[in-house]
Design a protein around this nucleic acid. Sequence first.
DNA 1: TTCGTCCCTTTGTCCGACAAAGCTTGGCAT
DNA 2: ATGCCAAGCTTTGTCGGACAAAGGGACGAA
Lengths: 258, 258
Amino acid sequence: MSLAEPGRFEKIKVPSAYQMVAEAIEREIMAGRLRPGDEIGTEAVLVRQFGVNRSTVREGIRLLEQAGLVQREAGRKLYVCLPHYRKLSDRMSRALVLHQVTFRELFEAAVILELGVIDAAVDEASEQDLAALEENQALAEAALGDPVRLAGLDTEFHALLAKASRNRVLELAREPAALLFFPTSELICRRVPQGAGRMVAAHRRLIDAVAARDKEEARLWMRRHVVDWKRGFERAGRDIDEPVESIFERLSSVRQYA
Amino acid sequence: MSLAEPGRFEKIKVPSAYQMVAEAIEREIMAGRLRPGDEIGTEAVLVRQFGVNRSTVREGIRLLEQAGLVQREAGRKLYVCLPHYRKLSDRMSRALVLHQVTFRELFEAAVILELGVIDAAVDEASEQDLAALEENQALAEAALGDPVRLAGLDTEFHALLAKASRNRVLELAREPAALLFFPTSELICRRVPQGAGRMVAAHRRLIDAVAARDKEEARLWMRRHVVDWKRGFERAGRDIDEPVESIFERLSSVRQYA
DNA sequence: TTCGTCCCTTTGTCCGACAAAGCTTGGCAT
DNA sequence: ATGCCAAGCTTTGTCGGACAAAGGGACGAA
């Protein structure tokens, strides 16, 4: 029996060399001594600096690469970069799927998050934000018969609203749920005849309310919009208490690690 | 000029072998053919299955390891595991810091998220949840003079509330912000004399309101509690519009990759 | 100046090797 | 028979070296 058992002392952890390489570079980044855009030396340089083998350096770099802290440009130079929201959100979404969260959890979180977003968006949206929303709306009205395209535009619509909120914390908080939530709009638009029309109509009202800085109106329509999703989901014959994993296959992007 | 520029064609991506190894294993996990707890073969087995070198397999495994999809037990067997919220949230928090979000963004998101949490907690909290909150409260009352301990208990209090909401989507959505938000309570408790007392008093009211299933009361005190944080923050001489990176050093956990 | 070619650098992959730490097995003492 | 211990096998972490492919730069030709 060699497993650590609870007791007087903590289990001693011996960090491996590749972990220490990753941590060392990460510390430089978090401390601001390496800034996004800066180049990290070549593998050969790192080998000399850390005094470990190139294989070890490479394994360490893989950790940072996966964390989104460094990136290779076209298979070449290695440089520091800001972890991109989308990538992080993808990971969170996968975690939610693996934890078998239900559509109900997703729905209830979406109500809270999207209401919060619309509140902030009414206060903060700029002309550019409104223009982007209008453009999305125009595309959506032209795609009323295409569920796949429409679902994509719905997802984008809410992402644009989140950006208009000018609150990146909120933007990041809602994204994982959104990535799982809105794609099911595709299912709804296909199965429920009036679904697409109601969705686009709600978007119209939301844009107008944001433009008019009318918070009450905006909240009202956002609530209707999200509740519509729930109704459509049930009308499409799905159970709101089923785990989301059932529809996840189509989401798994091929270029997860690219 | 070899950089891909926007134009007629998408950039061609050539996935490397180690990425394909990671993706292949990830697909098995996401498809449910490998379940949490299952063992993944030894490196030698993977070498034979994928027909690539062990170094390549190892680099692929590093990606999965960092993604939290696989884990090694005591440096030995490799097995599939559920990505843990805490680890994902750490990563998100770091991203927020690197993106230089401000305390204002953090504060406004916290208002929305914590109000959402308390709403759900009032509906869903079980006896066990309440017992855990009471225990936390007892410890906090005994630690009124210890800012560090108190800040930790405050963070835990809100995490317990989130768990009581029985909504894992919400729980995960709030955690990254919480990891940055509540630790500053330490600063407040140290600098603002009445800070600690007000905090513990608010927690008391929150527990009671949840126990009484009184949503209005709970929302009221949660709002006061969070606004108190903001007031304390300003009274401690900090600017709400400064980026959070300024206080991040103490958060960077040493065993990020362990 | 612009273009194409050659050469050097760097990455991705492969091969082989070895020490340390787990696990297994077989023998030994009780 | 049961329990303990040591030797041996397995697996991981690390190392050293090697090579093809692709990027980048220098150099010369048009």
